[in-house]
Write a protein that binds this DNA or RNA. Structure first.
Lengths: 218, 218
DNA sequence: GTCTATATACTGATAGAC
DNA sequence: GTCTATCAGTATATAGAC
């Protein structure tokens, strides 16, 4: 009878911790170097484990990468709650900008991993972009159009508006190195992020003719 | 006396053409896979040349990459003409957005190459970001502030405004795969780019309280 | 100037000792 | 479950035939 397997609970704990370490390390390495440029060796070193351990836990480099993409999509999906024509445009747009900024803030490596995947032509995410995400964008776009018909905002192209919000908010994760270099910072503080969120909300809401929430009576 | 070297002009033409092919191919491959992920082999195949030919012309992978980054910075510098407090904010901001969109349009691979470099922490561009580019941003920022003091635009943070314009315009090159997937297009047409430029100009100018050029009397 | 052959290091993945 | 040793394949770069 093998002795080392006796305490399964303990091993489960070790496994959990190692998997967490590997996923965190891999997210960073894939985000920095892209799929091809990332090596299992580099991931293992960042996780403080031998290379074969990483492959033992994750099966393959490809499987690990797909798992990370799916984890990021899941985080993303949390934000994708439905909206209705009856909602207040200002509140919805501000919540949209704010939650997207919070996601970039909480998961900068995941955001960069996603960006690297898109930059490389989205070889693993074609299906997601042309399916789930397209449907989500078009549903929101229809609501924006109805708001414009009701005179609650300018008749701007709703899809370009969504892309504008995405690009403006992702920028602070994806181009962090540029932002920090130019502004002579070592990191963006919570206060910085709050200022940027307020700034973007203000420009975008005013830019598409949405009345701020405070001015709209209940 | 060696014979093959007689016609230097002809060889010069071949060299020029090969170098051009290699640079174009390398820009694409580096943009797609990042520095580490790109292989000289893949670049050579894309250029239709043997691998050692690429290294013969370019010296090393690293040298080729740096040369491409510098070429992109040079293209960029063309846009960096000085502006003055006396200029019209609406005209300057529109020209800024329009020229940046044109650059993304003309050199999408270069734009993605730059994006991949920043995404990976800008290991080759630290100096440029903290020097030349920072100075350029701060000079423009000061002008924007003076415009705000004169009541020509809202007192928004000028640096965040520059980042907003950069992110919104770069998006259509860097995240092209996402834009095409979601909007069910095979490519962005010139008309699309013109619509997007008009859209962004409208939102951003209105968003920061700049009066459009037509409304401002000479 | 151009290309084949090769040197040396590293890649993802696996077999097998413990 | 964990790690060492090793596989075949590919990486950058160069030496040398033509």
């Amino acid at each position: 009878m093998p002795r080392p397997h006796e305490r399964d609970e303990a091993n489960g704990v070790i496994r959990q911790r190692n998997e967490r370490e590997i996923l965190a390390a891999a997210e960073k390495v894939f985000a920095t170097h892209g799929y091809r440029g990332a090596s299992v060796q580099a991931i293992a070193e960042a996780a403080g484990l031998p290379k074969s351990n990483v492959l033992y836990y994750m099966g393959s480099k490809r499987g690990l990468y797909v798992r990370l993409l799916e984890r990021m999509m899941a985080r993303w999906n949390v934000l994708l709650d439905d909206i209705s024509v009856e909602d207040d445009p200002a509140e919805v747009l501000e919540a949209f900008i704010r939650s997207k900024m919070a996601l970039s803030r909480r998961h900068p490596e995941g955001s960069r991993l996603f960006a690297a995947e898109i930059l490389g032509g989205a070889p693993f995410l074609q299906e997601y972009l042309r399916g789930e995400l397209r449907d989500w964008v078009q549903a929101r776009a229809r609501i924006f159009e109805q708001w414009a018909e009701r005179g609650l905002m300018d008749p701007v192209d709703p899809v370009w508006l969504i892309f504008l919000i995405w690009s403006a908010t992702q920028h602070y994760a994806d181009f962090e190195a540029q932002v920090l270099g130019i502004t002579d910072r070592k990191a963006l503080s919570d206060a910085d992020m709050e200022h940027i969120t307020t700034f973007l909300t203000r420009i975008i809401l005013k830019g598409c003719g949405v009345t701020p929430p405070s001015a709209a009576p209940g």
